[in-house]
Design a protein around this nucleic acid. Structure first.
Lengths: 340, 340
DNA sequence: AGAGACTTCCAAAGCGCTTTGGCTATTTTG
DNA sequence: CAAAATAGCCAAAGCGCTTTGGAAGTCTCT
């Protein structure tokens, strides 16, 4: 059932039927009703390919997925996706994942824009002066960044959590508990979120006359193994930290294992705080010692990004609006006063 | 730059240029070269929307993503995606995720097929007599199932791992080590993979005159917490198992925690084997006691599914070919002889 | 040399929608 | 009451590609 058939059936022109269906004003309300009715009754659905060719709009949002044998997709991605899908579903928005060589995402961005494959895109895990961001900004496709970049002479729309504030608060808590040697186990130091977290921690330390020594900060991909290694290194130093702030729950698993291997205890010998993106399959309250966290649901972020993307597509949102979500600090058993 | 301009520039008809580009035989090789050349030089790329309207092919593969507030996307999904993307990238195949209400995926399947939004789809986590499978089979769109279903009177193309064989082998090993009370901590019992695993285990036990008691089998979503709970229940029984086979590494984390909480030791009091889908961020060799596993890379499966999907789209693969991958049994420190 | 078979190319007809530019009544306005 | 504005509808022109149905030229064969 296509437009032609439907309009013939109604003894109307395709023009009128199309307009009636798309809510244009120059059509009699009575006629519109008739059209709407017939459309519903016959289950008419405009062919998206045709509509797309005519309008240039696809009704889909895009994400360029970096791939490669050595590239691991962040497990956070799936939770973010959950949220995104949750919103998208109710608006019949589909998501197009365009796999790209991790070393050359530009080609892919250009392709999906040139082809008008999607109406908007989102970027994630941005770095300072991220090329993708500059690119997408000049390409002129609506977009939103999940996270933030730095060092641009233009503003851009984004959704981020207050990473700096979160780690500032976590550190402040530890300092108040008497800790003087804090350490940071961070994610990839080239990503903005990691930089912000470090910044927040340094600020809290500085405010109390303390500093974060070079060897008290470790950065690596957020795996259990890297968490373990970082923790071992830190704890085997001459003057080991008495508190660690850690960028991910997965890494925290490794930290806990390292602490055990070394015959130490949490929180007796070491206080631990980690950032929690809220995974359904790994919860901080279920750690051997319930883990204190800075918490922010990445799933909600996904839903919000979808919502804003949809708003941008339909012209309801414009400009370079940045949105920063506060982060909860949840104190559980893994923190205690500094050992004497 | 579109076909019209390009053909005008070459003083050829659109027909000829289109044919030259698409490899049709009825065009002079010399002409073809000229066309190819010009196309490359001017960076001509056929507009996919137009091509799509004309051919009905979209160059994309689809996946219906069940969503909802209470629905968690499996963390395995992201690894599978990695593999899929890896292959898709090299073939400029995009993946369309169509979010659907988890209680009504049918509408979404019908929509993407009716709209010809994608050339093929894949399904995952099938259950016995899975409705989606029957649906997609009648809708007539090329598809592949990742996993298997049961109870249909038709065959269908799938890619699965030998879950039954894997758990059979794991159980056999434990039995050989003298264990008589084995327990199974399984994933959702309604999914086929879980049924197959249980079957494999029962078969190994039966072959040795043993059985799997009702209370020695637990099924639940594969989270750390559920692993913990299942393990506690099992180990607090009057006659606790001396060996557990567990369907997921994430659940195994919970099992390990439970064992610790109860003051028991692996492998002294309990032998443990788990299935490992190979996550980059959580490796069995890094468990407190290196974990024995049945191992199969879900990432490779993703790549293979993409490959077969591509083959089906282009007509290179046909029929209901099923492919079952063997699973490695990797023995590490978490298994030992049964306690006396 | 003429018929038939290739080879190589083209004009034009879709694919199914949106949108432009009227056209005809009917209402409103001065 | 004539002129102007408005309401409601339509025919036809795209959007940019693929594909059908020739047509013209070249070979092959008898």
């Amino acid at each position: 059932m296509n437009l032609k058939q439907l309009s013939h059936m109604l003894s109307l022109s395709q023009t009128t039927v199309s307009r009636a269906l798309n809510g244009y004003p120059e059509v009699n309300e009575e006629t519109r009703r008739r059209v709407m009715d017939a459309a519903k009754r016959h289950g008419y659905r405009p062919n998206p390919s045709a509509r797309r060719l005519a309008t240039g709009k696809s009704g889909m949002i895009g994400y360029v997925l970096p791939t490669g044998a050595a590239v691991d997709i962040d497990p956070h991605f799936v939770e973010f996706l959950s949220g995104l899908g949750d919103y998208a579903r109710s608006h019949e928005l589909d998501l197009v994942l365009s796999p790209a060589d991790a070393d050359d995402e530009e080609t892919t961005y250009r392709r999906i824009v040139a082809n008008r494959q999607v109406d908007a895109v989102y970027l994630s895990s941005p770095r300072p002066a991220d090329k993708r961001l500059a690119l997408v900004n000049t390409l002129g496709i609506p977009f939103i960044v999940h996270g933030r970049s730095e060092g641009f002479d233009f503003d851009y729309p984004y959704l981020d959590i207050d990473n700096e504030g979160a780690f500032h608060e976590a550190s402040r808590l530890l300092i108040q508990l008497g800790h003087k040697r804090l350490a940071l186990i961070n994610g990839n130091e080239r990503e903005t979120f990691a930089i912000h977290r470090e910044r927040g921690m340094r600020r809290a330390l500085a405010a109390n006359g303390l500093a974060l020594g070079e060897r008290h900060i470790r950065s690596a991909a957020m795996t259990e193994e890297n968490g373990y290694r970082a923790a071992r290194r830190l704890l085997e130093e001459a003057e080991p930290p008495t508190a660690i702030v850690c960028s991910s729950l997965i890494m925290a698993l490794g930290v806990v294992r390292a602490v055990r291997d070394l015959g130490l205890a949490i929180p007796g010998d070491l206080s631990l705080v980690a950032h929690d993106d809220v995974f359904p399959w790994l919860r901080p309250e279920n750690f051997p010692v319930p883990l204190s966290t800075t918490r922010s649901s990445i799933r909600l972020a996904g839903a919000r990004v979808a919502e804003r993307l949809a708003a941008r597509i339909s012209g309801l949102e414009e400009g370079a609006r940045g949105e920063v979500w506060p982060v909860d600090l949840v104190v559980r058993g893994s923190v205690a006063g500094a050992p004497a």
